[in-house]
Structures are given as C-alpha cells and as structure tokens.
C-alpha cells in the first residue's frame, strides 16, 4: 500500500501520468521543432511562433467546419487535408514575414525579439476580429475518438496516440530535411559560415527565407495537431511561447536531439510532479529547475563548441 492506493492502482496512476506526460511531450516537441530550426539555425527569436501555430489551428478549424457543411462524406479524412493546408498557410505567412521584417533585423537579435512580439500582438487581434474571442474546437472524426484499454485500469485515448505518432513522423521528417537532404546541408553551411556559403554559390537569402518559412510551417502543423487535444483561442499561442523557448534553449540551440531530449525531460518532470503537487506548483518547480540548470550550464544540454 502506498498512501490510500493499492500497488496496482498506484502503478496505473503512474502509467496514466506518464502517458499524459507523453502527450505534453509531443506538444512540446511539435512546438519546439519549428522554433529550434529558426532559433538554432538562424539565431532569430520568433516571439510570434505561438501565433503561427494558432494559425494552423484555425485553418484546421475552418476545414472542419467547411467539410462538415459541404463535403460530409470526406469528413473522416479531412484532418490530413487540414494539416497540409495549415502547413501551407503558416509557411506562406512565415515567408512573407521574413521578407517584410526579419531580413532587416538579422544583426539585431534583441530588436527581432521586440518586432516579432509586436507581430504576435497584431496576429492575436486579427484572430480575435475574425474568429471571435471565444475558444473554438474542432469535431474529431469517429475513428479518433475513444480509447484503447491496455489493462483494466489503464486507458489510452486514441487522439493522444495519434498526436504522438504524428510527432514522431514530423520529427523524423525534420531530421531528414536538415541532415540528409542537400537543402539541409546548404542551411547548415550558411549557419556555419555565411560569407563562405555565399561565395560558393549558395543563395543565402533564399536559404534564410525558406528556413524561416519551414519553421513556421511546422508550427502550423503543430497547431493543427493541437486541435485534436484542446481548443483554440486567439491568445492560446502566447501561453506556450516561454515554455517552448525554455525547451529549445535547455536542449541547446542548434541540436535537434537536444530539443527532443529536453522536451521529454521537462514534460515528464512536470507531469510527474503534478501527481504530487498542485498543477501550478508543479509548473513553478519545473520551470525553476530548468532556469536553475540553464544558469549553471547556459549552453544547454547538448551544444556545439564554436569559437567565439
């Protein structure tokens, strides 16, 4: 016996808590991947990242309403279309933003931070004007609802499983794009030596723009996935931006594996502590630990040694 629980009850609570942590982990990874690309590869702090995510969520919401009204037969599969559209929308907005704002600010990281914060405010108000201040949710197709029972006391929701699967696919996709494709090689070349990369004929401006767009596009997909497990409001993106940055910085900017490892550590720590403490205290303790570790090891968990 542990406290008021039997061992089997305790075990299933731990398992469920672990699973909740895994969903949180997926969400963190989805959000952080895009940010890690933009921050790690370009050194740009995009405070509007959450709003790009919400854009994906709203696109998914629009899809779900439109499909229910005009194409009910297609409904079970609309999610895949929605994700593609979410990517396209966020990618395009990202490219536009890079062209209008970011490219003028590459040497001024602190100013980029402020400008993108301004952008996030504008986007929030835009969403509020278009979609209203209330949170909206999408209707899930039947096959995503319900849950599988692993044992008598442990139940695993299907939508959670789907989000986790999606996360893995996207993470693998990003890995291939960044480390196995010739385009990724060009991106890394620009990161390591911009002038040299330009000199050997890489269009560094285009690489910047596409990298930024890609990061935003992934945020769009993340937003789309997000609708499966929660509802969307105009300011939902802002709630996560600091957590996401901590995930990226904690993992060590520029390291994909680091980002994933840090998302895992933080999400598991938080959901485990939530079992013992109130939600807010769990969050406070998690964030404090992360900040504390970052103070001891500012370069993050995984980092490259680059000559200053």
């Amino acid at each position: 016996m542990i406290g008021d629980y039997t061992y089997s009850e305790f075990f299933s609570i731990l398992a469920m808590q672990g699973f909740a942590g895994l969903i949180l982990f997926s969400v963190f990874v989805l959000m952080a991947l895009g940010l890690a690309i933009i921050f790690g590869q370009m050194g740009v702090i995009n405070m509007a990242h959450g709003e790009f995510m919400i854009l994906g969520a709203y696109v998914t919401y629009l899809c779900s309403t439109l499909v229910t009204t005009y194409l009910p037969a297609f409904f079970p599969y609309y999610f895949f279309l929605a994700m593609a559209l979410a990517f396209v929308a966020s990618f395009s907005l990202g490219v536009l933003v890079e062209w209008v704002l970011i490219r003028h600010l590459y040497r001024r990281p602190l100013d980029t931070l402020l400008a993108t914060w301004g952008l996030s405010l504008v986007l929030q108000q835009f969403y509020r004007s278009v979609f209203g201040a209330r949170e909206v949710g999408v209707t899930l197709p039947d096959w995503m609802m319900g849950s599988v029972s692993v044992s008598e006391t442990i139940e695993v929701p299907l939508n959670g499983l789907f989000v986790m699967a999606l996360t893995m696919i996207i993470a693998l996709g990003v890995y291939f794009i960044m480390y196995r494709s010739s385009w990724g090689k060009r991106v890394r070349a620009v990161v390591q030596n911009r002038v040299m990369a330009g000199a050997v004929g890489i269009n560094t401006k285009m690489v910047d723009r596409m990298t930024f767009g890609l990061g935003c596009g992934i945020a769009g997909i993340a937003g789309s996935a997000f609708t499966m497990i929660g509802s969307t409001g105009p300011t939902a993106g802002q709630l996560y931006i600091v957590d996401t940055f901590l995930v990226v910085v904690f993992g060590g900017a520029g390291s994909l594996i680091g980002t994933i490892a840090s998302a895992f550590t933080i999400s598991q720590a938080q959901s485990t502590m939530e079992f013992f403490l109130s939600g807010s205290m769990a969050k406070v303790l998690t964030l404090l630990t992360v900040v504390g570790i970052l103070m001891l090891r500012p370069q993050g968990l995984f980092s490259l040694n680059i000559r200053r």
Binding site: L101, H104, L105, R108, D111, T112, L114, A115, W117, G118, L119, S120, L121, V122, L123, Q124, Q125, F126, R128, S129
Partner: peptide, 17 residues
C-alpha cells in the same frame, strides 16, 4: 478596444524598424 492591440503591435514593429 479592438484597435489597441493592433496599435501596440504596430508600435513595437515601427519603433524597431
């Protein structure tokens, strides 16, 4: 009230750019 966030956001961007 609905214009305020636009104005504030615009201010951030303008002041930087």
């Amino acid at each position: 009230p609905e214009l305020w966030l636009f104005a504030m956001g615009g201010l951030f961007i303008a002041v930087v750019m």
